[in-house]
Design a protein around this nucleic acid. Structure first.
Lengths: 157, 157
DNA sequence: CCGCGAACGACAGTATCCTGTCGATCCGCA
DNA sequence: TGCGGATCGACAGGATACTGTCGTTCGCGG
């Protein structure tokens, strides 16, 4: 028996692993593309995502983090930067004295619109190239994977 | 016309955007799961990936970076850490004096085997839950998306 | 055979995300 | 009414990844 023969997986396990690899690689490309989309507005992918969440109404940092699937602290950092740049502001939250509500300013809305316009052209073009059906089916599979990974995680964590 | 009505996308553009969101969110979950998988061996997701590339033969840092779709410097950093931990070593490259070849040590192979064993059980279980066909189809779509995004990127970059 | 562009590693700087911990606040239940 | 668990923001620290620049080496074409 050779020293380095890898443990063999089932076909389904192989397929799962292959999908994981694809997701990890695609993440890099998508983040780069998102940064390029947001750059004309002087923003980044992360800031754009946070702005997108509070576009249709203020929310607390913790709520935004849950919506994006990120840690609270990551969003907090972005939110503070947005506030510093005058793109968003914190307003008192009557329902919770600790958690101020993050809200876009006029400048923030303008920046977001600039990004969204560019994103629309990009998404429409690439979406048409891949095909709506395939995209929706893949999306649905990824959602199931995310659910399973999140719920079962690894082993009995 | 309202101030904040978002630019509307085509259905395919919407589907594409939805897939992008799924990929970004899933990336976080998968990285976390990968770290959990690698932790018993005292490693991380990034180190494991680098070790996996050089498992079946030495390669230069630049080659590993290309294989993983990462920047050279990111891999270089991991490779240096692996060398520092005695899990990998650089050997002279007769074909290129600049680019040493990265190679696993015996300890590195042992660590990698530990991780692979855990990964196999994880991938088999989750793979069975999702279904091989769905996984392969989604994987194929993601590969096409990666190709299109990489080739066309954003606009005429 | 030589020179110049391409590829590589080294170094410095930046952005993003995570974990852990702490004190303040909130909320459900006794 | 009050107590204890849960949630929230603040702060500190660590891991990953990218860009840009520089000097070295490689290799192809004149």
């Amino acid at each position: 028996m050779s020293y380095d023969d890898p443990p063999s997986r089932t076909p389904a396990g192989d397929a799962f692993t292959a999908l994981v690899v694809q997701v990890l690689r695609l993440n890099g490309h998508l983040t780069a593309a998102g940064d390029a989309l947001a750059r004309p507005a002087g923003q980044t992918s992360a800031r754009w995502q946070v702005m997108g969440v509070v576009e249709h109404g203020p929310a607390t940092v913790a709520q935004v983090a849950r919506a994006l699937g990120l840690a609270r602290q990551s969003v907090q950092r972005i939110a503070d930067l947005l506030e510093g740049d005058g793109l968003a502001e914190f307003i008192p939250n009557p329902a919770d004295r600790r958690a101020a509500l993050l809200q876009l300013t006029v400048a923030g809305r303008a920046a977001l619109r600039t990004i969204q316009t560019a994103q629309r052209a990009w998404a429409d073009a690439l979406g048409a190239e891949i095909g709506e059906d395939a995209l929706r089916q893949a999306s649905e599979v990824l959602a199931r994977v995310a659910e399973v990974v999140a719920s079962r995680g690894y082993g009995e964590r």
